[in-house]
Design a protein around this nucleic acid. Structure first.
Lengths: 414, 414
DNA sequence: TCTAATTTTTTCGAGCCTCGAAAAAATACT
DNA sequence: AGTATTTTTTCGAGGCTCGAAAAAATTAGA
C-alpha cells in the first residue's frame, strides 16, 4: 500500500513480468511480450537476453515454421526446464503423493503412497511427509540441478501466510507447522496450501478462457470445499485459507455436520450427508467416517434408476449447494463454477434442485446463465495447482537480480 | 497483472505515495515520509519540493514546537486546501444532500433537501440531482479554484465500474447512469458509489486503529446493507457494488423480503421486518414502505421494558444477523464489525441473540472476541467516505505529472 | 555567549533503467 | 538478385533514485 517503488524494483518487476508472460503464453516472441506487457521492444530485448544468458529462458528451436508472413521470422522464447525445479506434496485422506516438476512445468518424477491418516499419530504423520520429500530429493535418477521450492497441499484449513495446517478432516491432529519443518529440514522455502485453492489455481492455467478473473471451484467429496478466484487473485481469509463454503449455514439448527455444528451446507451435501439421507437415517445421527467411491456410485445409480430416498438425498444436496451459492453470489456476484471430485460425476442428480434453489436467491437473478463444469478427478488438479503456485514463487523471487540463486537459504516469504 | 512498469510510472507512483502519506498522517515531516514509504531522503526531498512548487503541498507553520529533541527541527508537510476541491452527493430515502470539500478534507459548503424519492418520476429524480450539483458549483460564495471530481453515494446497487445506479430501494427507477450524466453536464469526472461502501471508507479514516485492513460495516435501517474492507481494500462484487449481505438466505423459503424473495436476512432484521414481527403479523405479509425512526424507538423502548413480541422481534433480527455474519466469517474469517444506522441504537436488544447465533457457526469459534461498535448516524459517515474516496482519486490522477490538471476533461476512469 | 553535538533537509554526482530512432538481421515476394 | 517487410538489436538521451556529503537549524553544555 504505502510502500514506494525503488529504482531497482523496476528491473526486478519487469523481469518477473517477462518470465510470467513466457510461462503464460507458451512460446511468445519478443514482440508479443512487448505487446502484452506494454514495455518497449528495447527493454524486452535487454531483459530477455539477460535471462537467456542466465539460463532461465531459451530460444525455442523453430519446431514449426509458423510464419506465413514475410519479414524476419519471430523467434519464440521458452522456459529452460533445467533452470530450476519444484517439489509438490499432496496430503489427502489416506493418501500421500509427491512429485518433482521442472521449471517448464513438466513432471519429472512422482511417488504415491497409501497411509492411514485418520488414526496415525502426529509424529508418524509428520515423519511420513518428511520421508517422501527426502526420497524425492535424494532420488539418484533425479537430473535436476536444484529444487527451489516446496508446496504442500492439504485438505483442510491452513493459516493465511501458508505456513501451517491449522485443522484437517483427514487427521485429528491440528496446528502442524509443515512449512517451518520442511524449511528447517531441507533448507528449501516451503508453503502449505489448501487443496481447493490449488484446484482453482490449476483451473486458471488449464482453461484460461473460462476461468480467468472470477470463478469458483467446489470440491464435492466426503466434505465440501471451495477455492475462489476474484479479480484474478486467489481469495483467502484474513487469518486462514478461508473459503469454508461447506460450513456456511444452510438451515439454522439443522442437520448434524462432521464439524460438530448444525445446518452447515456440508451436512446436506457432503458424501456422508447424502449417504445418511439416502439411508433415511436421522439428520441427528453421527456422520460416518468414510463412504467408498464405489458405494457412492451405487447410490447414484439407484437414484438415477427410480424415485426414492436416494434421489431425494441428492435433491437435498443440490438445494443446500444452491442456496449456499446464492448467498455467495449475493456477496460476489455470479461467476462460473467448476464442480470437482468424485461426486461431480453425480452432478446430473444434483443440478436440478441446485438451479431451482439458486433461482430463489438474490444472486440467482440470471440463474439460467450460470454455467457449471464438472471434473471428477481432483488429485491431478491439486498437484498441478501446487506446481504452478510454487513455480510462480520461483519466477518472482529466485530469479530477481540481486537475489541469491542458491537453494538452501531459508527465506520466510509468505 | 501482466502490465509492465514504465520508467515514468515510477515518478507518478511515488508522487502519489507521498501525497497519500501526507493525507494519512496529517502533518508528517519529510523524514517520516521517507520512513513510511521506504524511499530515500533525497527522493522525498525532490518530490516534496516539486509538490510544494506546484501548490499541492505546503509547509505547515510550526503551530506546535513539538521537537523536544535537539537538532534541526522537523518541518511538517500539509495538503494545500486550495489545491482542488471535490463535490459529494448523497441520495437516500426522501433525502438529497451535497457538499463541497476542499483538498484538505474540510467541508466548504453544504446543502440538504427533502424530496419524495419513492414516487418521483425518473426525469425529476435526475433533474433534482443535477440541480443540486449545479447550485453548489455555481455558488458565488464558493471560493474554490476547481472542483476536480464528483462522488455520488446512493442507497442501493451500483455497477462495478461505479458509473451507474442499477437498483435502489429508494426509487422504483433502475439503471440510471448518473456518472455519465454528471460528466456530460459538468465536465467533471464522476463516480457512483454504494452508501455502505462509503461508510466503510469513512470508518477507515476515522478509526484507523480499529478499522484497518479487515472489517465490516453493517447498515441497520429499513433495509440491511454492508460495506466490506478486506486486506486493506474495499471489497466489491465482480459486476456490481456487491456485498448484498441483507439478501443472503437466512431461512430457505422463510419470511417475505422487500426484494420479493423469501428468507433473506433483511426479511428478519430490516426495520420493516422487526416491525412486522413485533406486530405479530404473518411473515408472508407485505413489507410496509417505511417505518419512522420514532416508531422504531418506541418499539425498542417497549422491548426493553418487558418481554413480549417486540423483544422477540429483535431477537429474531439478532439471530438472522448472527447466522449471516457466521456464514460470512466462514468465508473471510472474523473481523471487527461496525453497526451503523438508527437501529444500531437498539443493538443492545439485538446483541444477545446475535452472539448466540454466531457461536453456532463455523466462523464463530471465538465469538466472544468478535467486537461490535455502534454508530447511529450514517449520513455524515457516508458523506465523509465519499469525500475521501473522491480525494483519493484526485491524489492519484490529477496530480500525476503529465496528467492534465484542468477539470472539464472527461476521463473514463473506473 | 559561544562552541560542539545532533538532527533534518538539500545538493550533487553516479549508476541504472526505459525509451525512441536507427541500424541490422532474416525472411518472402517479384 | 533486388526490394519490401517484419523482427530484433544497438546506441544515445533523458529521467529517476540512491548514497555521501554538505548545509541548515536547533539544543546542550562549557
Amino acid at each position: 500500500m504505502s510502500v514506494g517503488i525503488r529504482h531497482d524494483d523496476l528491473r526486478r518487476r519487469n523481469r518477473a513480468m517477462v518470465i510470467s508472460a513466457v510461462r503464460r503464453a507458451g512460446q511468445p516472441s519478443r514482440t508479443e511480450i512487448a505487446a502484452t506487457t506494454g514495455l518497449s521492444h528495447s527493454t524486452i530485448s535487454a531483459i530477455s537476453s539477460d535471462l537467456i544468458r542466465e539460463g532461465i529462458l531459451a530460444e525455442s528451436k523453430a519446431s514449426e515454421p509458423v510464419s506465413l508472413k514475410r519479414g524476419r521470422p519471430q523467434v519464440g522464447l521458452a522456459l529452460n526446464p533445467e533452470a530450476a525445479a519444484v517439489l509438490t506434496v499432496v496430503l489427502s485422506l489416506n493418501f500421500l503423493s509427491a512429485a518433482i516438476i521442472d521449471y517448464a512445468g513438466q513432471v519429472v518424477a512422482e511417488e504415491q503412497r497409501r497411509l492411514d491418516t485418520l488414526t496415525m499419530p502426529r509424529d508418524e504423520l509428520i515423519r511420513e511427509c518428511m520421508a517422501i520429500v527426502r526420497r524425492r530429493l535424494e532420488d539418484p535418477d533425479l537430473d535436476v540441478r536444484s529444487v527451489a521450492r516446496i508446496a504442500l497441499a492439504i485438505q483442510g484449513i491452513t493459516d493465511s501466510p501458508a505456513r501451517a495446517m491449522l485443522w484437517s478432516p483427514i487427521t485429528p491432529q491440528t496446528d502442524i507447522a509443515f512449512a517451518d519443518m520442511l524449511e528447517d529440514e531441507f533448507g528449501i522455502p516451503a508453503t502449505v496450501e489448501n487443496d481447493c485453492n490449488m484446484m482453482a489455481v490449476a483451473l486458471r492455467w488449464r482453461k484460461p478462457d473460462r476461468y480467468r478473473d472470477d470463478f469458483i471451484a467446489i470440491l464435492l467429496s466426503h466434505g465440501i470445499g471451495m477455492g475462489l478466484v476474484l479479480k484474478g487473485e486467489l481469495f483467502t481469509g484474513t487469518h486462514s485459507s478461508g473459503g469454508e463454503f461447506g460450513h456456511m449455514i444452510h438451515r439454522p439448527g439443522g442437520a448434524l455436520c462432521r464439524c460438530g455444528r448444525r445446518g452447515c451446507i456440508e451436512a446436506y451435501a457432503g458424501n456422508y450427508a447424502i449417504w445418511r439421507n439416502a439411508r433415511q437415517m436421522s439428520e441427528d445421527s453421527e456422520p460416518v467416517a468414510d463412504v467408498s467411491d464405489a458405494d457412492m456410485r451405487a447410490l447414484a445409480a439407484r437414484a438415477r434408476e427410480k424415485d426414492g430416498p436416494e434421489r431425494e438425498a441428492y435433491c437435498k444436496a443440490g438445494e443446500a449447494l444452491g442456496f449456499g451459492l446464492g448467498s455467495l453470489f449475493a456477496l460476489i456476484d455470479p461467476a462460473p463454477v467448476a464442480m470437482v471430485g468424485a461426486s461431480a460425476a453425480a452432478f446430473d442428480l444434483i443440478e436440478p434442485a441446485l438451479r431451482k434453489a439458486i433461482a430463489q436467491t438474490a444472486g440467482g437473478q440470471h440463474s439460467g446463465s450460470i454455467s457449471f463444469d464438472t471434473e471428477p478427478n481432483e488429485l491431478p488438479l491439486i498437484r498441478e495447482g501446487c506446481a504452478m503456485r510454487a513455480l510462480s514463487f520461483v519466477d518472482q523471487e529466485i530469479f530477481a537480480p540481486g537475489a541469491q540463486m542458491r537453494p538452501g537459504v531459508r527465506k520466510n516469504v509468505a
